[in-house]
């Protein structure tokens, strides 16, 4: 692997942290327009982050050192997970180091520390948010792994680069297993990033919040890192769906032209996906928390059906 490839990885890592707030801002803007509001500018998340980074940090008296460390762990683990998802170049050295299962593991690590930090201060809301987050993730992870296995069986590898290469070589083909895997992965992404049927990212209404409840005690740069990590995670899931199911435009040859085209293609696809998400959030209402297990159960079923339909319908004996 040439040094140029490592350069693209650094570039990709920078793209994730620098463009994730833009994606969030774009989704908020699109949602506001759909609801007949003008909405804040798409650059508002950057301003929020800058404001939070400049502010002083206040930590509760009851907090342990873990409370201070957690934001860094959450941010770095999410970022590391993001680097293994190709957005520009198919052949990533990092994808060879960490496959899809490691990706799920890295996200789980971040979530674990997020939940610990939520419980650390000892407020009622933090504990409630942590327990809800664990409920959701315990149900979402099997569904995610089912979708991952469906893809891995097609490409005969859990390496994300191999899977994407396989998808590109396949060209345009309708496959029932991919259809089910896409549906399952979308549901998991919605649950994991706390979007509307599961959690409402725009509210601090105490009875319904999940992610926000864990962050209530955070201030200043800690809060900025936590929010930034959530934005990177949203972009990660978007990039994952785009890379696996709509990989057109990504380059296999590493050169400047190819990377530029791939960057434009990926940004366009992510913007489209964000608009779709905004539309879905406008149409749907938030579900009751006790309906969420049913939703994730459905995602697991879709993943299983993807696996089964691959075995039954697509493997000729």
């Amino acid at each position: 692997m040439s040094s140029f490839a490592w350069l693209t990885i650094c570039l990709q890592a920078l793209i994730y942290v620098s463009l994730a707030p833009l994606l969030t801002g774009w989704i908020r803007k699109a949602k506001a327009r759909l609801q007949n509001r003008r909405g804040p500018s798409v650059f508002q998340p950057y301003r929020d982050l800058r404001k939070l980074l400049a502010k002083d940090v206040h930590v509760a008296h009851t907090a342990s050192p873990l409370f201070r460390v957690a934001p860094y762990i959450v941010f770095v683990s999410t970022w590391l997970a993001a680097i293994t998802v190709p957005i520009l170049v198919v052949e990533l050295p990092t994808a060879a180091v960490a496959d899809l299962i490691v990706l799920v593991g890295l996200l789980a690590l971040g979530r674990f520390f997020l939940a610990l930090a939520g419980m650390d201060v000892g407020t009622a809301f933090g504990g409630m948010g942590a327990s809800r987050e664990m409920l959701i993730s315990a149900l979402a992870e099997p569904a995610m792994l089912m979708a991952v296995f469906t893809l891995a069986m097609q490409a005969h590898s859990t390496n994300l680069s191999t899977i994407v290469t396989h998808q590109i070589e396949l060209g345009l083909s309708l496959k029932p297993s991919l259809m089910f895997a896409l549906a399952a992965l979308s549901l998991v992404a919605i649950a994991e990033t706390g979007r509307i049927p599961v959690d409402n990212p725009a509210t601090h209404l105490e009875l319904t919040m999940v992610h926000e409840a864990m962050l209530l005690e955070y201030t200043g740069r800690h809060l900025a890192l936590m929010e930034w990590a959530a934005q990177v995670k949203l972009m990660l899931y978007g990039a994952l769906i785009v890379a696996i199911f709509f990989p057109w435009g990504m380059t296999e040859i590493v050169d400047v032209d190819g990377v530029m085209i791939a960057l434009l293609a990926t940004l366009g696809k992510l913007a489209l996906l964000g608009a779709v998400l905004a539309g879905a959030e406008t149409v749907l209402a938030k579900a009751r928390l006790f309906r969420v297990p049913a939703l994730l159960n459905f995602a697991l079923l879709l993943g299983l059906l993807g696996l089964l339909s691959h075995v039954i319908l697509e493997i000729g004996t």
Binding site: Q154, L170, K175, P176, M179, S309, L313, E314, G316
Partner: peptide
């Protein structure tokens, strides 16, 4: 190995529809 890639688009549609019947 996969045979789906060698099928025509019509035949792939049939497989998709069959999977949807199962889903329903």
């Amino acid at each position: 190995m996969n045979v789906a890639s060698e099928l025509s688009l019509l035949q792939q549609t049939v497989l998709i529809a069959a999977a949807l019947v199962l889903f329903l």
